[in-house]
Amino acid sequence: MHLVFADNTDDFYQKSAERIAEVIRKKPSAKIGLSTGRTTKGVHAALAEEWRRNPFDCSGIKVFGIDEITNMSRECRASCYYILLHEVVEPLAVPMENYIMPDPMAADLQEECLRFEEAVMADGGPDFIFLGLGENGHLGFNQPGTNFGQTAWLSWMDDSLNERLRRENDIPENVVMGGLTLGIKNLMQCPRLVMAANGRNKKEVAEKMIMGPVTEALPASVLQLHPGCEVILDPDAAGALHESLKRE
C-alpha cells in the first residue's frame, strides 16, 4: 500500500483524477472500474475538466461501476448508473456500448450478479479500479463482516444510507433497496487499485484501514495486502498520519 498525501481539497481531487487519466492515456483500451459517492463526485468533475483541457481518447475504454442499488430505476439521480453516466461516460464521450452496469431491476438478481461479474472479468478483467472509502470501511457494498473471498453478490445497505436515499429521492418504504456489488475477491484481483478518502469524517476509518489489523470487520483493511494499491488522502482524512509515518 502506497500513501499519497494531498496538500488541500483541490489537490486531492486533481491527484485522484490524474490517476484515472493516466491509465487511459497509457492504455486506450483499458477496462476501468469506478465508484460513486460524495468523494468521487469531485474526482469525476476534475477528470472531466482534465479531459477538456488536455483531451485524451476514451472511445476504446470500457467503464463499469463496482456496484449498484437494487430496485432503483436507472432514471433515478441516486442510481450508480445515472451518476456515472452523467459524471463520466457522457463528459468523456465513452461509447454507451462500452458502459458496463448491472440491471438493478432484473427479475433474478442472483443471476444478474453472475452476469455482471462475467462481463467485468471477461478478457482479462479490469485494469484499474478507483475506490472511495466508506465511513464504516466498506468497499462497494461489501459491508463489515463480508468474507474476503466473496465474489459478486447481493449485499445489504447500512441504515444511514438507506434513510438518506429515501429522504432525498422520495423512495417509498415498501421498496427494498440493497447492493448488487462486486465482491472483495473481484476487487483484489485487479492489478491496480486507488483508494481515495477525504474529510474529517473519514479520519478515524482511514487510520484503521492503514495502521490497524487486516480484518473482515473493516473490509478496506484488506487493501494492505494488495501490492498495487495506492491510497490518496486529503489533509482532513490524513489527520496526524503524515507526521506520524514520517517519524517512524
Rank of each mutant, 00 (worst) to 15 (best):
T39N: 06
T151C: 15
K31V: 09
V214Y: 08
K203I: 01
V4C: 05
S155P: 08
S160K: 11
N147D: 15
T70Q: 14
I83R: 04
F64M: 13
Q150W: 12
P213K: 07
R53S: 14
E117W: 09
E111S: 06
P104W: 15
H226D: 05
P95R: 00
P28H: 01
I232F: 04
F141I: 14
L34R: 04
L218M: 11
V89W: 08
T40L: 08
V194W: 06
G42W: 07
D234E: 12
L154R: 12
A152Q: 11
D170A: 04
Q14I: 05
E168G: 07
K185T: 04
N142F: 12
I24C: 03
D103V: 04
I100H: 00
R38F: 12
L109W: 12
G140H: 10
E216P: 14
E50L: 15
K31Y: 06
G145W: 13
I232L: 06
L34W: 11
V205G: 00
H44F: 07
S35K: 13
D158E: 12
V231D: 05
Q14C: 13
L3A: 02
N198E: 10
Q224R: 08
P126R: 03
T146E: 11
R192C: 10
I83A: 02
G228N: 03
L3G: 02
V222M: 07
R53C: 10
I184S: 09
K41G: 00
L131G: 00
M177T: 06
K31H: 15
E49W: 00
V89D: 02
N147V: 12
L218D: 00
E163Y: 12
V231F: 04
Q189Y: 11
P191N: 07
M121H: 02
Y99G: 08
E112Q: 15
I210G: 01
T151H: 08
N147P: 14
S221C: 05
D158V: 06
P91F: 04
V194F: 07
E204Q: 03
V214W: 13
A107I: 06
G199P: 04
A240Q: 14
T146G: 15
V63W: 01
S155C: 12
P95I: 05
L47I: 02
A238Y: 09
